[in-house]
Amino acid sequence: MREIDVKKITETVADLCIKASYDLPQDVLDALNEALARETSPDGREIIRELLKNAEIAKKEKLPICQDTGYAVVFIEIGQDVHLAGGDIHEAINEGVSLGYKDLRKSIVNDPLLRKNTNDNTPASVHLDIVPGDKIKIAVLPKGGGGENASAMAMILPTASKDDIIKYVVDHAVKAAPKACAPGIVGVGIGGTFDTVGLLAKKALVRQVNRRNSNHDIAELEKDILKRINASGAGPMGLGGLTTALAVHIETAPCHIASLPVAVNMQCHAHRYKEAVI
């Protein structure tokens, strides 16, 4: 049994929130550079150049990449041999978000109807898993409102063909592109239940950009959908071009004989994601 003080979780979450806000991961930068090399639309090229320049300024000046510093989505995996001491883990995570967002935009309201800003960007959206081992892995994905609003899910027929699934995802991703700050990452969940399919789509985002699903058929489906989305010509910010998405990531799960849930979680080009292991 390894004892870890929850204060360590607070410090780590705060640090990850801050770093994520200004330091665009290298895999996203690589994908944007590759997109620039391929892009032929003058507006599309200009937009991608702006994004690369923006990332450079943000990192140098420690300024947020995007003004929407997001809902703090926190994935936390706790080893079953860890004993957490010193307080409540949920309070520790939110304390970390509150500290981390001191100089970032506070974008969370306390109640969907009353809509009063909580003024410290809490609470976080926490996904907690217990896994083997004696470590804690924490990942922070600050999720902007534009991409979330442009996301969708459907309970389609279990007799639907693969083409039907492809059409649903492609149509949605193309239509959502301008509002979801294309070119970004299209996270897709297929299967599971009404409650889990959205989480599958979100978890699909937290993978290195363009690292394929380990299942060959799903990996091929990812490539096929990406090709079709980019063939639409919607382009960066929806203003035309070859780059409407940088990547399509799919996660799947078993599902009921009567069901075929599909979810599309749109992620903008400002794909901010940081993780750490304690």
């Binding site: 923006n54 990449i65 995007c66 003004q67 506070k106 080009h269």
Partner: peptide, 27 residues
């Protein structure tokens, strides 16, 4: 339309900023 998510770059064009009204609304 301006480029969404290019917020560090766009901030450089802002020479002066002041709260005009509704400061209680924060962001």
């Amino acid at each position: 339309v301006a480029t969404g998510g290019a917020a560090a770059l766009l901030a450089r064009t802002v020479k002066k900023a002041e709260v005009f009204e509704y400061g209680d609304l924060g962001p």
